[in-house]
Design a protein around this nucleic acid. Structure first.
Lengths: 157, 157
DNA sequence: TTTCTAAGTTCATCATTGGAACTGATTAAA
DNA sequence: TTTAATCAGTTCCAATGATGAACTTAGAAA
């Protein structure tokens, strides 16, 4: 059967999962954020099958996270770049990486980034924009009496 | 062909994607963080097929993000709860939601949370633990001269 | 006795995936 | 002048995986 379509759900997690909820898309975005640009570059870096890569890149371009641009005319050569929307997704990857660093590796995290503006080695934390404190699950509650579930569209008929 | 296994890659994004890189797992975790506990609860809330749900829950339990516990003995009834590892994943969902709120909805975000400790409505931001500033993609560079790619295991032979 | 609920399992079908080979345009090497 | 190499894909196939529907099991309720 065809994969379910989450893009109409009234939930940001669902819509985001619909876009990047497969095993390759987050890695394509990770690579793009580290400077990989060409089709073969992604292939070599990820070991993804070319046909799957085509689909993933097309989707990312269609959804506006990446743009395809010719960098050479004869012969035609293309590269894929993150758009603003795609750049803005990088912090999501950082939060995934921070969780993985903590829970999926016994020893030191495998890849480290420097936060240029402060010079420190980056440790990413999800915080509350208002108070600046780190957000933990137990510290949250729905606003008002929101009907939070189900978020999927009612079947019509 | 079989889905590629990312769990051996030297990359936290890859290992995390291996765990939650499908369309349903993030939504199961989202529901769990909002209080859904029973098998049929997840079914009703998500509209997921029972068979797929079984696989997802088993995986989450096997990986230690959730635990299965009997809440009734005769008849046997079970519930699924987030472990500490699972709770700790909630901020990743929040960063996904924040991105989705911004880029995938024209109007107001569909679901809002209150940050109990400060009382404000939550807006999640990924920040640098050192300086507290919001992290943006352009402000990052690899530490030292890390060989960041490829991160997948070399084929042996 | 029949129905109901919770928590799954089994089944057949259809979609997606990954691997390998192929295309086509151009440049570089022998 | 062949031959090889590079980049950016497309095509084809077999195998795996997802899906909805129906079924199971254990006990409770009508």
């Amino acid at each position: 059967m065809k994969k379910q379509d989450f893009s109409g759900w009234q939930c940001s997690v669902a819509r985001t999962a619909d876009l990047i909820g497969d095993w390759w898309t987050p890695l394509v975005l990770r690579d793009a954020s580290r400077g990989v640009q060409t089709f073969d570059g992604f292939c070599d870096s990820l070991g993804i099958s070319r046909n799957t890569l085509t689909q993933r890149l097309n989707r990312l371009v269609a959804e506006g996270l990446m743009q395809r641009e010719a960098y050479n005319d004869r012969p035609k050569r293309y590269r894929y770049l993150l758009t603003e929307k795609g750049m803005d997704f990088v912090p999501v990857l950082l939060s995934m990486a921070a969780w993985g660093d903590k829970w999926l590796f016994d020893n030191a995290p495998p890849f480290r980034l420097r936060h240029k503006s402060c010079g420190a080695e980056l440790r990413s934390v999800v915080t509350c924009a208002c108070c600046g404190e780190e957000v933990v699950a137990a510290d949250l509650e729905p606003v008002g009496t929101q009907e939070c579930l189900p978020t999927y569209p009612e079947p019509k008929g």
